[in-house]
Simulated scan of single mutants.
Amino acid sequence: MSIYRPKRSPFWHYDFRIDRYRFSGSTKLRNEDDAARFEEARKVDAQIIVDRIRAAGAEPLTLKAACDRWWNTYPVGRSKSPGYGHLKLPHLMIAVSAAEQQ
């Protein structure tokens, strides 16, 4: 069971993962047992979503994929971002790739 009640909230929240997909939010329920049943229903819905994503052949967006997408959208010569972000991005990608391999 992955429900919890934040200190300053009267409502129970859920937080769980299926594969590499994270699902979280408020149950908007005050009773712990009701919140647990709500979370179980969300898990069933989440599994259907993950199954559909897999059937479509899609994968979660990794930081490396996001960097690649950004790099291809804003090539060095015509980058709209100020500063020297295009010089730092390759170093960030190398660091992320090394961390993912560990």
Results as ranks from 00 to 15, higher is better:
42 R>D: 03
27 T>V: 07
18 I>F: 08
3 I>L: 06
95 A>C: 03
25 G>H: 04
2 S>E: 15
36 A>E: 13
88 K>N: 08
100 E>I: 10
24 S>R: 14
22 R>T: 14
72 N>R: 00
78 R>S: 09
57 G>A: 04
51 D>W: 05
69 R>H: 01
49 I>N: 06
16 F>S: 09
17 R>M: 14
102 Q>E: 14
97 S>Y: 03
70 W>R: 00
41 A>R: 15
82 P>K: 11
71 W>P: 00
34 D>W: 08
31 N>F: 06
100 E>H: 10
50 V>Q: 01
58 A>I: 03
70 W>I: 00
10 P>L: 10
45 D>G: 06
47 Q>T: 07
100 E>Y: 13
98 A>Y: 07
87 L>R: 12
36 A>G: 11
64 K>E: 06
8 R>N: 13
100 E>P: 03
70 W>A: 01
49 I>T: 13
22 R>H: 15
19 D>A: 15
27 T>F: 02
25 G>R: 04
10 P>V: 13
48 I>T: 09
48 I>H: 12
45 D>Y: 08
85 G>A: 08
98 A>C: 07
35 A>K: 02
3 I>K: 05
3 I>E: 03
9 S>I: 04
40 E>I: 10
81 S>N: 11
41 A>M: 12
88 K>M: 13
53 I>A: 03
44 V>N: 08
74 Y>D: 01
57 G>V: 03
96 V>H: 04
37 R>A: 15
86 H>M: 08
73 T>G: 00
102 Q>M: 12
51 D>N: 15
58 A>M: 08
16 F>V: 10
51 D>P: 03
21 Y>V: 05
22 R>F: 08
97 S>P: 01
40 E>C: 07
49 I>F: 07
33 D>Y: 12
77 G>Y: 00
32 E>M: 08
52 R>K: 12
15 D>K: 12
7 K>G: 09
86 H>D: 11
26 S>L: 02
52 R>M: 07
70 W>F: 01
39 E>N: 14
80 K>L: 02
10 P>K: 15
93 M>L: 09
77 G>V: 00
18 I>D: 05
29 L>C: 07
60 P>G: 02
63 L>I: 03
21 Y>F: 13
74 Y>H: 09
84 Y>M: 04
24 S>W: 13
20 R>M: 08
29 L>D: 03
84 Y>K: 14
33 D>C: 11
29 L>V: 04
70 W>G: 00
56 A>E: 11
71 W>D: 02
23 F>C: 05
60 P>E: 04
7 K>C: 06
59 E>H: 09
87 L>W: 12
99 A>R: 14
22 R>L: 12
102 Q>D: 11
30 R>Q: 14
78 R>I: 02
44 V>E: 14
79 S>I: 01
81 S>I: 11
69 R>D: 01
68 D>E: 04
57 G>Q: 02
43 K>I: 09
21 Y>S: 07
8 R>G: 12
99 A>W: 13
90 P>L: 09
102 Q>N: 14
42 R>V: 07
62 T>K: 02
96 V>E: 06
62 T>Y: 00
72 N>Y: 00
57 G>D: 01
26 S>N: 05
27 T>P: 05
28 K>G: 01
5 R>M: 12
13 H>A: 08
96 V>D: 03
68 D>K: 01
71 W>R: 07
79 S>V: 04
61 L>Q: 05
8 R>V: 09
66 A>L: 06
45 D>T: 10
50 V>A: 04
58 A>L: 12
15 D>L: 09
15 D>A: 13
7 K>A: 13
81 S>V: 13
96 V>C: 07
75 P>Y: 01
